[in-house]
Design a protein around this nucleic acid. Structure first.
Lengths: 347, 347
DNA sequence: CTGTTAGCGCCTTCAA
DNA sequence: TTGAAGGCGCTAACAG
């Protein structure tokens, strides 16, 4: 049987309350006593039963997810995953809530962060845009003792506690590498469709992609980046125009959330030679993968990200360490053949 | 606050014990009473606090993993993951143990299963070979009320409760599809290195691969399967001979655990045109991916598999349903660029 | 058939 | 600075 607080109390010759004070290092214990208890803990190899501890404190952790609103399917999937995790959350004594803010809007984002701080939540997870006032808001959360994790797109200098998302530079490299191999010797330039260069993740993917393309045995032109603001209409227009203007186009890398417009622009075509790689598995990209319109999809699993964010925030709130290796989010590569069955929250 | 057993007892006008009996549907409750309690449960929207329940019963679940012994790196990685999971297992009130049996040995496997049944463990997870006596042993476990899950390679007709592993037909298809695209128009036949056609997973991968190759726009010869018994020496010999005999070889699909020999046979070569796809991310395949000797690795995450097996066995032991969607093991595709940092248990 | 009572391992008042 | 006692939500003896 595993040792319990009783065993430690007996071993150290103190009461349960004292053991508890030492375990949660709370004040009010003499140095000597503390040392004695710590010795007992070490001697018996005690490890606290977290479930019992949670039961006893019956504390709940209100966590806030701040996500961009709009019709970005990946973000809607992320929100669905938060809601889904919220159903199971009472078991882990967390209460999840979602706050939606206009996309690309630093001011609104800052307002949402400050509101969460004012509510004194136990942790904040947010998809942030890269702006100095956002970093300042994150610093305020830190100052208030509220753990903060960035989701999907990072903001390194901000002092956030943790980043939950993929390595976007590696994602871009992966896309470039796959595109290069799929194209082989086929000539022609490739186009890149992004949302906005103001998003750190989009910039990073582009950097990785360009690096990988440059490292390919055959040199290939990459056309100037098309920025569609992750808007279906704009993406459709940009891609349509590009296709018309570039008859020998060999490939398209869609690194943002403009896939609805992309697929629409592509769907009229019959040219099987065009290599298309996109990000995020959504209803659009899944269907396009199945019909062969898209060749590969790079994905970050929204469900994993949400669960990881919750675990990290809880750990930070309790002052526990996080296992970085376990919390690393992998970059999935999907082709037609390894597509998982559609989940309920995929849009 | 969430309703508790007390609330239900009050609402239904019965005692805690009766509520407990209904909840765990144990006998000794009159139909009417039961109905009244059930009504209260429904009315209050009660959901049981599993952590508290486990705490109260202080039951532990001894689970046995039966794995093939030998130097198969994937199996050793799997074993390491079981041991690692065993460290955290007291928290989930499980106790994990590993039993090693000679690979490809149905008799030894059956003996191990029967031993576990005799010990009255709470669940068995095993990497099984495809043989009628194995199915019979699984049936005995079932008869003894012991949940049984197959790991990595399935045995569908056996009545096992669950399969933890990837869809191996889809894995083969994925390999074929990638190989076809990577090769493009490059001519030449491809070779297949397997462990043994007696392993269901190897047969399934081969089937999928052949189907995908057949569906490619350009027809390509697939040489007769090389069976290396997952032995480094045999694999080395088979691949060396094949390379020598087939100067125009375009690709190799290694669908078993012969990668050490494969890499060794490949390492002398300088022909960059050969496309190599292998299974399972190990020290060998990781290094070969990094140096470019291997182009892609298909992987099933051993850590996920172990954790899934534990969850499923626990659920079955408690008579709870399993969420099939959550327990689905994904097929990972790794290329040089999306390789995750090496974990401690990878061999 | 049903209820009472005493824990599971831990935390938290409240006294001393 | 320390300890005693009660309770978190659930289960399991043992009575009735």
């Amino acid at each position: 049987m595993r040792p319990t607080v009783h065993d430690i109390a007996a071993e150290a010759g103190v009461s349960l309350a004292t053991v508890d004070r030492v375990l949660n290092d709370r004040p009010g214990v003499r140095g000597v006593t503390r040392a004695r208890v710590e010795a007992a803990i070490a001697a018996l190899g005690y490890v606290r039963d977290v479930a019992a501890a949670n039961l006893a404190k019956s504390r709940v952790y209100p966590l806030v997810f701040i996500l961009p609103q709009g019709d970005n399917p990946f973000m809607r999937g992320l929100e669905a995953q938060v809601r889904r995790a919220g159903l199971h959350s009472p078991a882990e004594r967390t209460r999840l809530s979602v706050v939606s803010v206009p996309a690309f809007d630093a001011v609104a984002l800052v307002r949402a962060i400050d509101a969460a701080i004012a509510e004194d939540v136990a942790g904040i997870a947010a998809v942030v845009v890269d702006a100095p006032e956002v970093s300042a808001a994150i610093a305020r959360a830190q100052a208030a003792g509220i753990p903060f994790v960035t989701l999907v797109s990072d903001l390194e200098g901000s002092g956030r506690d943790h980043f939950v998302g993929v390595d976007n530079i590696a994602a871009g490299r992966t896309a470039g590498s796959l595109m290069g191999r799929f194209l082989g010797g086929r000539p022609g330039p490739v186009a890149v469709l992004a949302g906005s260069m103001r998003l750190r993740d989009h910039r990073e993917r582009l950097d990785g992609f360009l690096a990988a393309m440059a490292a390919m045995p055959t040199a290939r032109t990459v056309l100037p980046v098309l920025e569609g603001q992750d808007d279906p209409g704009q993406a459709f227009a940009l891609i349509s125009r590009c296709l018309a203007a570039t008859p020998d186009l060999a490939g398209i890398y869609s690194l943002g959330a403009g896939n609805h417009g992309l697929v629409k622009a592509l769907s009229g075509r019959t040219d099987a030679g065009l290599c298309v790689i996109a990000h995020e598995l959504t209803a659009d990209t899944r269907a396009a993968l199945e019909t062969g319109l898209i060749d590969a999809v790079l994905n970050q699993d929204a469900g994993h990200e949400v669960r990881s964010a919750v675990r990290v925030l809880r750990a930070k709130a309790d002052g526990l360490p996080v296992n970085a290796a376990q919390e690393r989010i992998r970059l999935d590569i999907f082709i037609k053949d390894n597509l998982p069955p559609a989940g309920p929250d995929e849009e």
